[in-house]
Amino acid sequence: MRYIFLTILIQFNLFAGLVGAKIVSLDLENESAKIDIEKIDVGMSCYVVHHITPEHSAILKSCVVESFDAATKTAVVKMSEFDLLKNNALPSGKWEVIVGDSVELAFGYTRSLLIAPSEEIFYQISKSIKTQWIHPDTFATLLSIHGHPTPLQEDFSNLSSASSAGLVFIYLDKKLYTVDMKSFKILAISDAPLTQDSVKLPFYSRVEKIETSWFIFGEGSDEMQSYEPHYYELLVENNKNNKTLYEIVRKSTNEEVHSLINEFEIGE
């Protein structure tokens, strides 16, 4: 089993620690910034940090890596409001993002969640990747609190905020997807030729049943009907230009999965 996951381990080492880079230019009209960086993955979530003094700093924006140019060693990050630590009872600063501010990437990438269809696959994968795992029971409990037996992207984002976890690994059809838990962008797709004899919905955990709530309606409130189509749908929704995912969906023999081909935004 260790040989099957050798490529996964090699790729995961790239996410082993927090990465910092300086903003070299700003495009305020498009709420984006350019940073100098040796190598980074598109889809990584990050924060813009403004240093008020050498000893004091403040997080001003959340952001996601939008593009990376290997020739110039630069990346563009798309910025959005940072509201993770929002507290209306406390005063907030009026600082604006400026050239020279820091972008901190890969926060929480040493803590991960694994979505697997069975106990056997869960333990085979979790023992093959060196990371600090968030047990799926924790996620199942969070879903029960919100009455979501079918997990949504916002549920993964909420878990990320609550546990400071940055990555989610999703096993689908003999492949393992490494996904940024906040942006839900695919960072890597690795072959994982494991035998799948059973499926537990919505994913393997020791929680027997994820509770619903009679006063919660809408997306996520119904029981999940099938494993692969749901997680493929979440991945496609947030990776519409991913050519590798496009080819996987195009070749799928599962009609529900194959129908997602129309959701991509890939030109001829």
Rank of each mutant, 00 (worst) to 15 (best):
E265M: 12
E119T: 04
L6W: 10
G20V: 03
L159W: 02
Y204S: 03
H258R: 15
Y227I: 01
E38S: 13
W95Q: 07
F122Y: 15
A71M: 13
K185N: 14
V48Y: 05
W95K: 05
M224E: 06
Y47G: 10
F15T: 09
E66R: 13
N87C: 11
G17V: 02
S126Y: 02
V97H: 03
M44A: 00
A70E: 15
Y109W: 07
S252V: 10
W214L: 14
L142E: 11
H51C: 03
L113E: 07
N241Q: 14
E104W: 02
L9H: 11
H258D: 08
D137Y: 00
F156Q: 06
I4Y: 07
I125H: 00
I189M: 11
F169H: 02
L194M: 04
Y171I: 05
S164V: 11
I115F: 02
F169P: 01
L18F: 10
T7I: 04
H148N: 04
E66N: 12
E38M: 13
E256L: 15
G108H: 09
I216G: 00
Y3Q: 09
A58L: 13
T141Q: 14
K200T: 13
H51W: 13
A71Q: 14
T195S: 14
S102P: 01
I37V: 11
H258Q: 14
E154S: 14
I10W: 01
E219R: 14
A192T: 08
I145V: 13
S163T: 15
H50S: 05
A71T: 14
F215K: 06
S128Y: 05
A140C: 10
D155M: 04
A16E: 12
S160Q: 10
E237Y: 07
V168N: 01
E255H: 01
N254Y: 11
E154F: 05
L234R: 01
K175Q: 10
N88I: 15
